[in-house]
Design a protein around this nucleic acid. Structure first.
Length: 256
DNA sequence: ATGGTTGTTCCACAA
């Protein structure tokens, strides 16, 4: 079973790129972030033509998450914070596991209310993970975490100092998640890898300079970690015409 | 140190 995450930065603007990628990568399910459209405007028919069911939690202009899957998914929850009007969370049951698609808040600028919102949101994610572990529900939390976990996850740590993606408070939330007993699928299988990025800014030639960061992740509960076969970053989509600024991360699990 | 880009929507904001 192949599960992927892909921040597409507008599903409508990116439709040809996403369709091309689905045809070549053939994932069983993919979590999309920043679809930037309301659920009614999601291009379902195009994905259904490739054999995918669409589970969509959209929002006008910003945010928005969706899950494409070969088999139908059952929606468990679409929000993490009670009063969250931002569409950043989609938890489904799929093929006997809980698949959680997240688009964590960016948090910049850190002097604004956006940074405490990010930390509050991550705190709620930690609470949710804790509850699922207690219930022994096998789960995957994947998506755009907007967190650079370690210095080796960015081209130039100095350049990211003070940024909400690299602030000690953000990285501490990541470590708390890991310390619950979750596994960073990429790091487990590639402990020494550097220049393993999932995002390159559109600006300042970040892609040709390979000035990227690793912010798209898959955290696995112990039962799912036992099934992990591979975890790869597919860099090809980032080099395409009209690319998203993110590229997909793919995990492969053994059949149950 | 600065400026650089993309998407959506409306003339700014978010990333």
């Amino acid at each position: 079973m192949n599960l992927a995450t892909f921040n597409v930065n507008s599903v409508r603007a990116r439709l040809p790129n996403v369709l091309d990628w689905l045809k070549s990568a053939q994932p069983d399910a993919v979590c999309l972030q920043e679809i930037k459209c309301e659920s009614d405007a999601f291009p379902r028919a195009e994905f259904e033509a490739l054999g995918y069911h669409c589970t969509v939690h959209g929002q006008k202009t910003y945010n928005g998450v969706a899950i494409l899957s070969r088999t139908p998914a059952r929606v468990v929850s679409t929000s993490l914070l009670n009063d969250d009007e931002q569409a950043r969370y989609l938890e489904v049951e799929l093929e006997g596991l809980r698949l959680i698609n997240i688009y964590a808040p960016n948090g910049n600028p850190v002097e604004s209310e956006k940074f405490p919102y990010k930390l509050r949101w991550l705190e709620a994610l930690i609470a949710r993970a804790r509850a699922l572990l207690r219930e022994e529900v096998p789960f995957v939390i994947t998506g755009d975490y907007n967190i650079i976990p370690e210095p080796q996850d960015c081209h130039d740590p100095k350049a990211w100092e003070g940024d909400a993606l690299y602030r000690p408070e953000s990285r501490a939330k990541w470590r708390t998640l890991c310390n619950l007993g979750l596994y960073d699928a990429f790091r487990v299988l590639h402990p020494q890898a550097s220049h393993a990025f999932t995002f390159w800014d559109y600006q300042a030639g970040a892609w040709p300079r390979d000035a990227g960061i690793r912010i798209d992740h898959a955290l696995l509960s112990p039962q799912v970690a036992d099934r992990l076969l591979s975890c790869t970053i597919d860099k090809a989509p980032r080099g395409a015409e009209k690319a998203s600024d993110h590229t997909p991360l793919i995990i492969e699990l053994t059949a149950q």
